[in-house]
Write a protein that binds this DNA or RNA. Structure first.
Lengths: 342, 342
DNA sequence: TTTAGCACTCTCAATATCAGAGTGCTAATA
DNA sequence: TATTAGCACTCTGATATTGAGAGTGCTAAA
């Protein structure tokens, strides 16, 4: 449907627009991209491309600007084309930066998003492993001041969460050990979701109400599991403020609104978490209405072969897709590696 | 130096400007605040106040706007004047919101900042207890997958930090118990700063290098202590975007720049942490250059009688000081209470 | 099929105009 | 002496006008 020449010109327009957010004129294309064609010919072609929905004009007699459909074509052609040399300097630099990150999952993800936004100059997000499907490994209860107990929850995936839980009366460490032993034997190998629903059932039972140990154990466990379903890490707001795409207040409010409700991002990334590999959502393709003016590049990270979370970049539709895709891919692979490494 | 009438008019101008960010004219004052004086008289007085540096004109023939000195006078007079009835509805509401917060310090502070920014519509910040002066209570080492150890550090103040630490070879829980027993006896009652410096000294010693247990213990402990000096919690960026004071991009970038470098805020709050009670820094009074266009209201929270951290609000100099001061005070007292309560 | 030429369109920046709001000053007033 | 009415003056901000510049679409020639 699009001959080779038209494709090249479309990509040239888009690339030029990505480099510099001014509507692209026919003369500029002939100069910059040395097709041996006159501006008039380019004009005809661009007019065709507009008719096909790949380009649009902000107004008659301005240059052309890519539509979401145009970006989609461009991104798809990135994959088919000779995947540009990824031995660009930033690949090494980013990899090196990431390698220096150690520590628990939360730190890992928050540091990774920081590096990603630093390198990309876009907003970077990461969703922590879905806690629902994480597998309970064991729980450790430690006595703390007075009636307070510190719970340390381990999952097979390496998720470590601690909470401070109030109990009705002062318990000895011995009591706590008995409680944790009970919980560990009871719930070993279950997913947290399973445990949550089992707790609800258990609490209704006669037996539980009578046995103080069990009822205490159940209550403590419920508290220990009462953390948000998936933490989200966001970084790089100040980066996007520097972009020409966010030079007016309305745009800034828009993106701020898009990330304000973290719930929305969680929902979006959650959906993306189900498919493996890098995914790209361009502008109006997004199912979340608030994000239809932006593009999302995201990829899942895995534990073994199971995708468990998601890392990505949010930026203007006019983003450097090629670079962004590479970065997100590197970050996702890195996180995956860290998971299997420990 | 300022007679009663002038004071009243100055406060009226400032209050009006706080309600509505338009330069205040003489006619408006007579109408709104029913002084039995004509606009002309008010004009004379306002002219005097300008000469004294309390007000300024954006340009000839605009109304007047308070200067930082004006705000300072206003704030000081808030204290001396009959402290307005704090049984305003938001006091109850905020208190109630806060009371619902449970859990460890980090959650406590992050939730408190969220509530504060929600209620104030300004940016809210909190500095976690200075880890340097926190007192080591005990450390717990838990075996994790492979060569990984989870460290759980308790301080007397209730700070709980966990880290994942790599060790050179696989250790049994028994080994770990011995190591933690060593550390607990060695460092009990020391501040973390003391421990850090002692570790550096120890590592150079002959004895340590030879004894595997000790050298391992020291290394693990060093890792366990390698968290940032003071975490900072910031909330409410989207709130300030809604304020008329941030209706142009430059202003937004300014405040974003002010909080971008968290280091600066830490430094500022750190300095504030030394004095007890609510402190107010208005615009140019700030020692941090980047924050001279904003005002800061902050208060310390204490453990026992010792200030250990800080919570505050950052907003435009044109902020509702009275309300803000009350809110910060409530939040600081709440956090203090939570500390002594456990 | 491509291209040169040209009339046309639209934006953006610069400039002019004007109502509105507020001031400062002067002279009258209580 | 302190206050006030009146008035000329100043500055902003919204609106309209203009013209250069960039880019287009169309037509006719190559």
């Amino acid at each position: 449907m699009l001959d080779e020449r038209n494709k090249k010109i479309l990509c040239a327009v888009i690339q030029s627009y990505i480099n510099n957010p001014d509507p692209v004129g026919s003369r500029f294309i002939t100069k910059k991209y040395a097709f041996s064609l006159s501006p008039a010919t380019i004009r005809n072609i661009m007019s065709d491309l507009e008719e096909m929905g790949f380009l649009s004009q902000p107004h008659t007699s301005a240059g052309r600007v890519p539509t979401d459909k145009g970006y989609r074509f461009y991104v798809d052609s990135l994959y088919s084309g000779e995947n540009q040399s990824d031995n660009r300097t930033f690949v090494y630099e980013l990899t090196e930066e990431l390698e220096s990150i150690k520590n628990d999952i939360d730190t890992l993800l928050s540091e990774t998003t920081k590096r990603l936004s630093n390198f990309s100059h876009y907003l970077s997000v990461a969703l922590s492993p879905k806690t629902g499907i994480a597998t309970f490994n064991r729980i450790k209860l430690l006595k703390h001041k007075g009636n307070h107990v510190v719970t340390v929850l381990f999952t097979d995936e390496g998720l470590i969460k601690n909470r401070v839980v109030d109990v009705d009366s002062e318990l000895t460490q011995r009591d706590l050990n008995r409680i944790s032993a009970y919980l560990n034997s009871e719930f070993h190998g279950c997913t947290l979701d399973e445990i949550r629903s089992r707790i609800i059932k258990e609490m209704a039972k006669e037996k539980v109400l009578c046995d103080r140990l069990i009822s205490r154990a159940i209550r403590i466990c419920r508290e220990a599991l009462s953390f948000p379903y998936g933490d989200i890490f966001i970084s790089g707001f100040s980066e996007v403020l520097g972009l020409p795409d966010f030079s007016d207040v309305e745009k800034i409010k828009e993106i701020s609104r898009a990330i304000e409700d973290k719930h929305l991002i969680v929902k979006l990334l959650d959906r993306l978490s189900e498919v493996e590999g890098v995914q790209i959502i361009i502008g109006s393709e997004n199912s979340v209405a608030e994000m239809r003016k932006f593009s999302v590049v995201a990829s899942t990270y895995k534990e073994g072969s199971k995708p468990i979370g998601c890392v990505g970049i949010i930026g203007p539709t006019r983003m450097d897709y090629s670079k962004t895709i590479t970065m997100v891919d590197i970050a996702a692979r890195f996180i995956t590696r860290m998971f299997s490494g420990r």
